[in-house]
Every structure is written in structure tokens, then in C-alpha cells.
């Protein structure tokens, strides 16, 4: 359905001529609903953090999670370099950057699991307290989104090796980029809301 070569020259513009790629628009609408999904979880966490504060906040180790934040930032950086590479028609470089993203994603997830286990050792679990419930639910759902991102990156990685992407057909990588950067932004908000405030 390419844009219509319409004889009508007046300024009435059809959807096709707005210059919006409909797949990307659909992705952004999905991101809007994800913002509200995480919004609900963050509102729950903040509600308990403000209305019924507990001392368990001190158990959290900011430096370890800070490193995790660096890792996720790095993976975002890799993804955007990958997208830039494919636009220069360099699929090998894209594959390389996707590989880095997968590795950093896995490191981030293992960092989270390590942190969960160390907190559980100190008695903070999903069912131990309101703070525990809301903290673990929120971070676990974010972790789930990172896992989905890692699986999506692996699929893209395989597809790139098979020559699935070129400078003109890079929409798949753009979509993955939007999703991955969104998950990274959510982590930045979580990092601030849980550990810093």
C-alpha cells in the first residue's frame, strides 16, 4: 500500500502521505500501554513506600545495582550502534552488537537473581512484607521484559546471520530498539524509585 500517486494536488493528505511507518506507530502505541502497565506497578510500590514505610529499604545494595544499571545502559548503546550499522549495510557488525546485547542482558538478569537471593538470605522475600511484595513483583516483571528482549535479540541475531536484514529492511531492528530502550528507561525509573529515593 505505498503512498498513492494521486492526481489530486490539493492539500488533503491521506494517511499514506503522513510519512509515518504504520508498524512503528503500532509499536509506539504498544509502548504507551506498557508505560501504563509499569505505571500501575510503580504507583503500587510508591504507595507502600510512602504510606507504610518500612526499614527494609536499608537492605538494598546500591553499588551492585548501579553496576547493573551500567550494564543495561551499555546494552542500549550496543543496540543503537547495531541499528546504525545495519543502516550502513553492515550485517556482520549488527550481529556483533546484537551478540553484545544478549550477553549484557544475561549478565543483568544474573545480577538481579544474585541480588534477589542475597535479599532473601536477609529475610526480605515476596511474602515477607508489603515492601517485599511490591519490590519483587515490580523488579520481576521488569526482569521478565528483559528476558523477552534477550530472546527477541537472539532471534534477530540468527536472522541477521541469515542475511535477513539490510539497509532497506531494517524495520525489525528499529522495533527491537524501541522496545529495548523502553525497557532500559523503565529500569532507570525503577533504579531511582527503589534505590535512590
Amino acid at each position: 500500500m505505498g503512498s498513492q500517486t494521486s492526481a489530486l494536488k490539493d492539500h488533503f493528505r491521506a494517511g499514506g502521505e503522513l510519512g509515518i511507518n504504520h508498524i512503528k506507530l503500532g509499536m509506539w502505541f504498544f509502548i504507551a500501554s506498557e508505560v501504563m502497565f509499569f505505571g500501575g506497578l510503580i504507583a503500587t510500590f510508591l504507595n507502600f513506600k510512602i504510606n507504610s514505610p518500612t526499614l527494609e529499604g536499608e537492605l538494598l545494595d546500591v553499588t551492585l545495582v548501579g553496576i547493573n544499571t551500567f550494564i543495561l545502559l551499555g546494552s542500549s548503546f550496543a543496540v543503537v550502534l547495531g541499528l546504525d550499522a545495519i543502516r550502513q549495510d553492515k550485517p556482520r557488525q549488527l550481529a556483533f552488537y546484537l551478540g553484545i546485547t544478549i550477553v549484557l542482558g544475561v549478565i543483568f538478569l544474573s545480577g538481579q537473581v544474585f541480588e534477589f537471593r542475597s535479599l532473601a538470605a536477609e529475610g526480605l522475600t515476596l511474602t515477607s512484607s508489603v515492601f517485599g511484595s511490591s519490590f519483587f513483583t515490580m523488579t520481576s516483571f521488569h526482569g521478565l521484559h528483559v528476558l523477552i528482549g534477550v530472546l527477541w535479540a537472539s532471534r534477530n541475531f540468527i536472522k541477521t546471520l541469515r542475511g535477513g536484514y539490510s539497509s532497506s529492511t531494517s524495520i525489525g531492528i528499529e522495533l527491537f530498539g524501541i522496545y529495548w530502550h523502553f525497557v532500559d528507561i523503565v529500569w532507570i525509573i525503577l533504579f531511582t524509585v527503589i534505590y535512590l529515593i
Binding site: F29, A32, S33, V35, M36, G39, G40, I42, A43, N47
Partner: peptide
């Protein structure tokens, strides 16, 4: 589309 829901979230929270 991205900033709108974020503001709505702030109001809801």
C-alpha cells in the same frame, strides 16, 4: 504517544 501516558501515570500515582 510516549510522553502523554507518562504524564497520565504521574497524575494517577
Amino acid at each position: 504517544i510516549f510522553v502523554g501516558p507518562a504524564l497520565l501515570f504521574i497524575m494517577f500515582a
